[in-house]
Design a protein around this nucleic acid. Structure first.
Length: 587
RNA sequence: GCGCCCGUAGCUCAGCCGGAUAGAGCAUCGGCCUUCUAAGCCGAGGGUCGUAGGUUCGAAUCCUACCGGGCGCGCCA
C-alpha cells in the first residue's frame, strides 16, 4: 500500500521534472509515512517540504503541483495539501477491506517479502561459554537472536543459526580442574589441594564429579601436590592445572574435560530447546585447532604483513584497521588467545560463502567489535558484511532486590528456572519487548506474575478469543466440525465492503501495517518492533470486539466479520511465531 | 582519563536517517459483564523529551559543551 503511493508520488515528481517545472538536481528519498492523526488521512508524504528548499519555492504550492500531477489510482479516495506542505492521502475503504481477504486467502504466511531471496546470512548467537548452565542473563541473547533470525527469514534471507562453542582454552582447563577436585572430594581422596578461589563452584560441578565417580570409581584418583604458597590466584590456578595434567596424563585430563563439556552442552541444548531456540550448527572452537585453521589464519596474517612478533608474542596490527591498540594473537607462553580463535572462526564464516554475517553479542563485548572487524578487513574480506548486534545484559531483580549473577560464584538463576516458573512464552516476549541495545530490568516477580502487567497475555488473549469465536461459529454451523469456522470466515470474502464501522476499519488498517512492520524490524534488526506492533494489533481487536458482536446480525455482515477476525488471528499467530511465542486457542 | 551506549509521564519504556497537537503499558481515579473468553473495553489526570547553546521554515530526533547513569578499556575469556 505504501509502495503504491511511493510510486504515485515518484511519478508525479518526475512528471514535473520532465516538464521543467521542478528545478532540482537530485530528489531527496521519497518517504511515505503513516499519519498519526486520522484527520490527516491515512498516509502523508513530506516530500514537498524537502524539495522546496532545493527548488526555491513555497512548499505548499509545490505540494499542490505534485498533487495535480498525480496519476489516477483507485485506492486513493482523496488527496490534500495540509500543514506546511504535507501531501495527505485518504485511502478508499476498499483498499483496507481487501487486505482481510488477502490474508485469509493467502496460502503462505501473509506479510512476508522476498526482498532478500537468494541471499544467505549467518546469525551467531548465545555462544555462551560451556562452563555452566545458561542463566537468565543469557536468555535475552537467545530470545533476540532467534527472533532476529526469524525476521530475516521473513524478508527472504536464507538463514543459518549457529552457536560457537568455546571448548578450548584456559576456561575449559579451569572447568576440568574444578570437576576433578570435586571428584577427589567425592571419592574422599586423601591427598588433595584446597579448592581454588577461581574454580567453578556451582552445584552442577559436583553433579558431574559424582557422575565421574560412579563411572570411574577411584581410577581417576591421583595425588596432587601443591607448590609453595604465595603468588597470585591465576598463577596458582595455572599450577594446579599443570599439576592435574601431569598427574592424570593428557588422556586422563581429557576424560574429565570431555565429561564435563558433554554434560554442560547437553544441558545448554536442552535448556534452549525448552526455550524454543534451535540451532542449525554448533561450531567447536577446538575444531579450529584440530583442523589447523587457527595455525593457517596466523600464517595468512603474517604473510599479509598484518601480524608481527614483539616481546615474544605474536600481535595483530589492529591499529592499522581502526582499533585503538594492537592485539595479541599468541602469548609469549605459546598459547593462542581467544581472539586468535575468533579471527580463524570469522574467516571460516566468510569462507562458507555467507553474504552477511551477524553476531549477537552481550554489551560487555562491545569493545571487541573493532578488532574483529579489523581482522576481517586485514584478511581481505568485506568487513561491511559483518555486523554485530549488541544485546544489553538484563539486570535481574526480585522485586526491590537486585539479584547477583556470577557463574563462578554459583549464585544465579538459571534460564531453566525461569522457563519453569514463568513459561517460555512470557520469557521470550519479555526479553524482546525492549530494544535489544537498551538495558532491561528483568523483574522475576513481575515475569512470574500472571497479571496483566505481562503483555504477552494481552496478545495471546486476543488470539484465544478469536479462536473461541471461530469455534462457536463452527458449532452454530450445525455440523460440529472443528473446521467449520474456517469455512465461515471464507464465506465473508464477498462481503468485506460491509466492514465500515470505525473499529472495523481501525483493525483493518492495523492489519495492513504488518508487512511494513516486518520489513522495518528486519532491516533494523529490531525484534521489539514486532512485540510493540502485536500489542497495537491486539488493542485494535479488543476494541472492536467490545464494540460489536461478531456472531449476530445478518449473515453477510457476520461472515465479513468472521473473515476480519480470522485475518487478525493469522497475523497475531504469525507475529508471535516470529518472536517465538505460541498462539494458544484457549486460555 | 579514553571509547561505546543511555537520560522522554510516578514506574518500565516506544518514538530518534528532522516534520503536523510527544505515545504505550503499569500505577492512580471514574465508568462498562442477562449478549461471541472482563487475562477485556471506554474515559480522566499526569511531560522544562537531563541542562545550555548551535544548525533549520521546522529539533525528543542532527551538532557542540556540560551534568547524571551503564558498560568496556589484559600476553582473560
Amino acid at each position: 500500500m505504501k509502495r503504491g503511493l511511493e510510486t504515485l508520488v515518484a511519478s508525479a515528481v518526475s512528471t514535473l521534472h520532465a516538464r521543467g517545472e521542478l528545478d532540482i538536481e537530485t530528489a531527496p528519498p521519497l518517504v511515505i509515512e503513516r499519519t498519526r492523526d486520522p484527520r490527516h488521512g491515512d498516509f502523508a508524504c513530506p516530500v514537498a517540504l524537502g524539495l522546496a528548499r532545493a527548488a526555491r519555492c513555497n512548499p505548499r504550492e509545490l505540494a499542490a503541483r505534485i498533487v495535480a500531477a498525480l496519476p489516477e489510482a483507485g485506492d486513493v479516495e482523496s488527496t490534500s495539501v495540509a500543514g506546511p506542505g504535507f501531501i495527505n492521502f485518504k485511502m478508499a475503504n476498499g483498499a483496507f477491506q481487501r487486505i482481510a481477504g488477502e490474508i485469509v486467502g493467502s496460502e503462505s504466511p501473509w506479510g512476508r517479502s522476498r526482498r532478500h531471496a537468494g541471499k544467505r546470512v549467518q546469525v551467531e548467537f548465545v555462544s555462551v561459554n560451556p562452563t555452566g548452565p545458561l542463566h537468565v542473563g543469557h536468555g535475552r541473547g537467545a530470545a533476540c537472536g532467534a527472533a532476529l533470525a526469524n525476521l530475516l527469514e521473513a524478508v527472504g534471507w536464507e538463514v543459518e543459526r549457529e552457536y560457537y562453542v568455546n571448548d578450548a582454552g584456559r576456561q575449559m582447563d579451569i572447568l576440568a580442574l574444578s570437576v576433578w577436585l570435586r571428584y577427589l572430594e567425592v571419592i574422599d581422596w586423601p591427598e588433595r589441594p584446597a579448592f581454588p578461589e577461581g574454580g567453578y563452584r556451582g552445584e552442577y560441578i559436583r553433579d558431574v564429579a559424582t557422575e565421574l565417580a560412579r563411572e570411574h570409581d577411584t581410577r581417576l584418583g591421583r595425588d596432587l601436590v601443591e607448590g609453595p604458597p604465595g603468588g597470585d590466584e591465576d598463577a596458582r590456578l595455572d599450577a594446579l592445572i599443570a599439576g592435574a595434567r601431569a598427574a592424570l596424563g593428557e588422556d586422563g585430563f581429557a576424560v574429565v574435560a570431555d565429561a564435563v563439556l558433554e554434560e554442560i552442552l547437553a544441558g545448554i541444548r536442552e535448556d534452549l530447546a525448552g526455550f524454543g531456540v534451535v540451532f542449525d550448527r554448533w561450531f567447536s572452537e577446538r575444531s579450529l585447532v584440530d583442523t589447523g585453521a587457527l595455525a593457517r589464519v596466523l600464517d595468512i596474517l603474517r604473510e599479509r604483513g598484518e601480524a608481527y612478533e614483539r616481546d615474544g608474542a605474536l600481535w595483530f596490527s589492529a591499529t592499522a584497521h581502526g582499533d585503538e591498540k594492537d592485539r595479541v594473537l599468541v602469548r609469549a607462553n605459546g598459547q593462542s588467545t581467544y581472539f586468535a580463535s575468533d579471527v580463524a572462526y570469522h574467516l571460516d564464516k566468510f569462507e562458507r560463502g555467507f553474504d552477511r554475517v551477524i553476531d549477537v553479542w552481550g554489551a560487555d563485548h562491545h569493545g571487541y567489535i573493532a578488532r574483529v572487524k579489523g581482522a576481517i578487513r586485514a584478511l581481505g574480506r568485506n568487513a561491511d558484511a559483518f555486523e554485530v548486534v549488541i544485546v544489553q545484559l538484563a539486570s535481574l531483580w526480585r522485586g526491590q532486590d537486585r539479584v547477583a549473577m556470577s557463574t563462578r560464584s554459583g549464585e544465579f538463576v538459571t534460564l531453566r528456572d525461569l522457563v519453569d516458573e514463568v513459561g517460555a512464552d512470557a520469557a521470550r516476549f519479555f526479553y524482546v519487548l525492549r530494544k535489544s541495545d537498551q538495558h532491561l530490568d528483568f523483574d522475576l516477580e513481575l515475569a512470574k506474575s500472571r497479571s496483566t502487567e505481562n503483555p504477552v497475555y494481552y496478545v495471546q488473549y486476543a488470539h484465544a478469543r478469536i479462536a473461541s469465536v471461530l469455534r462457536r461459529a463452527g458449532e452454530e454451523g450445525g455440523n460440529g466440525n472443528a473446521n467449520a469456522g474456517a469455512g465461515a470466515e471464507r464465506s465473508g470474502l464477498g462481503h468485506l465492503s460491509r466492514l465500515t464501522e470505525d473499529h472495523e476499519l481501525g483493525l483493518l488498517k492495523t492489519l495492513s501495517r504488518y508487512p511494513e512492520v516486518v520489513e522495518a524490524a528486519a532491516e533494523a534488526c529490531e525484534p521489539h518492533q514486532i512485540a510493540h506492533y502485536l500489542r497495537d494489533l491486539a488493542n485494535a481487536f479488543h476494541s472492536f470486539y467490545n464494540s460489536h458482536t461478531i456472531l449476530a446480525g445478518e449473515a453477510d455482515l457476520r461472515s465479513a466479520r468472521l473473515t476480519l477476525v480470522e485475518a487478525t488471528r493469522r497475523v497475531i499467530a504469525d507475529g508471535l511465531g516470529l518472536i517465538g511465542v505460541s498462539a494458544p486457542s484457549t486460555m
